[in-house]
Design a protein around this nucleic acid. Structure first.
Ligand SMILES: [Zn+2]
Length: 495
DNA sequence: CGTGTTTGACCTGCGC
DNA sequence: GCGCAGGTCAAACACG
């Protein structure tokens, strides 16, 4: 079969460093049975490219969407040189989504035809020219479409940046306000905050100390994303500064002990409008973050995976393994080995109830920039999402039926994932289908001080197990832009 | 030889 | 103080 060439569809490919997911105008739907469909499979395409690298200078994947969504998939491969002046042959195949399925004879075969005939007929030339013209027209159209999509991407990015900046500003204002309030409250003695589930559809109460104004926020210290224990997200527009409120959750007697040891972070809903949920954050969630004196942050990720080590772009060195009590599965301890002295650690353990679920818990902040690989991963789908997507079989589509739930446990349970102490854990749960989550929307929970819980349920394993079971309690939903919010939650630890 | 894994020993916090 | 369990250390080992 004659060698194929591909036409450039866009001489201005989207920068791979684009912080948004590199949409891949992926692969045509293949029709193997159609002899006219000469475009090879993606794999073959790559092979072909390797073989003819001098001809096919560049292949660009613009958008990558759900593999199951073939109708929306367009795959464009392109020469980097100016195709408009390329007299050589062309195969352009656009899939059914565009209604295009254009194919012209191979150059060589054309040439041979001409040679065979000696003198080419004018009609033949005209036919070819017509086809070229048609192709050119389609090319132009496709280029226009590419530009339009790229503009949309840029616009999205811009909007996101703007929103983030606004969010940061509001958070900062809140922070100042809350700090002063907090000082006063500490002066007067702390008040215990009971565990409570708040329904956002109910009117807010003063008692909850939650600010339900979507535009409101709290604020905490911000840290470089590169320091995040989780793989950082380097998306320029994704420096999601979330909200933090430092609470005095204890009685005066325990105050000294607890102060500086625990910070409770509350994240306020940005947008509760269902119509804008594609870019909306979870309605709300709260996060206990053990930090302060310990300087630790912790995020637990639940994802279905056959392998224990979910590829998160990080470089980890195993330093220990233990058989957790009551669990047939060993728990592994890893330390970041990207930089000497990096305090970031992670634990990997399979869930007792469902051994297909891998629970990975990250702790601490990196003291170094992340590896290019980790950054790249973060740029593409965000590292968090990348980890989370493991279980959903390779789809990068933000429209996957999987949602993540985010919750936090006031302390780690030995049943599910046991990390020392009573430090709370932020849990990203990507093991449940979204339809199981939807009913819990608009809910979040304020949990009481971990210390209080721990002391109130002393060594009661059943309760602990129960706690783990309810770890699935859904605090938010990610109907569309789950990657965005995975990044957001990953960056919680930056504050 | 550098890096990562394995694994028994050791440390620490907590409950009794 | 003792025992238990989680977490960490570090020597031995494996591997490229
Ligand atoms: Zn690190």
């Amino acid at each position: 079969m004659a060698r194929e060439k591909e036409i450039p569809m866009d001489s201005n490919p989207i920068d791979n460093n684009n912080s948004l997911n590199p949409f891949v105008l992926n692969s045509f739907t293949e029709d193997i049975n159609n002899p006219m469909m000469m475009t090879p499979s993606p794999k073959n395409n790559i092979d072909n490219e390797n073989q003819t690298s001098h001809e096919t200078l560049k292949e660009i994947d613009f958008f990558k969407v759900n593999n199951n969504d073939h109708n929306k998939v367009v795959n464009l491969s392109a020469f980097a040189n100016d195709h408009t002046n390329t007299p050589s042959l062309l195969e352009l195949k656009l899939n059914s989504g565009t209604g295009l399925n254009l194919l012209t004879p191979n150059t060589s075969s054309d040439q041979s035809m001409l040679d065979d005939d000696g003198m080419s007929t004018t009609s033949e030339e005209k036919r070819i020219k017509n086809q070229m013209a048609i192709l050119q027209g389609e090319l132009d159209r496709t280029n226009m479409e590419n530009r339009r999509l790229k503009l949309m991407l840029d616009q999205l990015q811009t909007d996101y940046d703007t929103l983030r900046m606004h969010f940061n500003k509001v958070m900062h204002d809140r922070m100042v306000e809350r700090k002063s309030k907090e000082k006063e409250r500490i002066k007067n003695g702390g008040v215990l905050v009971p565990s409570k589930v708040i329904d956002f559809e109910s009117p807010p109460t003063v008692e909850t100390e939650m600010d339900l104004d979507p535009s409101s926020s709290l604020m905490g210290r911000k840290r470089s994303r590169d320091e995040l224990g989780l793989p950082t997200n380097n998306t320029d527009g994704a420096s999601n500064e979330l909200v933090l409120q430092k609470k005095s959750t204890n009685t005066v007697g325990d105050e000294k002990k607890e102060l500086g040891k625990e910070i409770e972070r509350e994240v306020i809903p940005i947008d509760n409008d269902e119509n804008t949920q594609s870019l909306s954050p979870p309605n709300s969630y709260t996060i206990h973050q053990a930090e302060g004196a310990l300087g630790k942050a912790r995020v637990s990720v639940r994802a279905r995976s056959e392998i224990d080590m979910i590829p998160d772009g990080g470089q980890w060195r195993k330093y220990g393994q233990k058989m957790a009590k009551g669990s047939p599965c060993a728990r592994s301890y890893y330390r970041c080995s990207l930089s000497a002295g990096c305090p970031v650690r992670k634990q990997v353990q399979r869930c007792i109830q469902d051994t297909t679920i891998v629970i990975t818990t990250y702790e601490g902040f990196h003291n170094h920039p992340l590896s290019p690989k980790a950054k790249e991963m973060a740029q593409r789908t965000s590292s968090a999402a990348n980890m989370l997507l493991i279980g959903s079989t390779s789809s990068n589509d933000v429209r996957t039926p999987y949602s993540s739930s985010i919750t936090r446990t006031p302390y780690s349970s030995s049943a599910a994932i046991s990390i020392s102490s009573t430090l709370p854990v932020v849990t990203l749960d990507y093991t449940q289908p979204s339809n199981q989550l939807s009913k819990h929307r608009n809910q979040f929970r304020i949990l009481e001080n971990p210390q209080n819980i721990a002391s109130s349920s002393t060594s009661k394993t059943p309760q602990r197990l129960n706690q783990v079971d309810t770890m699935h309690h859904v605090l938010c939903d990610f109907p569309l832009a789950k990657e965005v919010w995975a990044m957001t939650f990953a960056s919680i630890l930056l504050m």
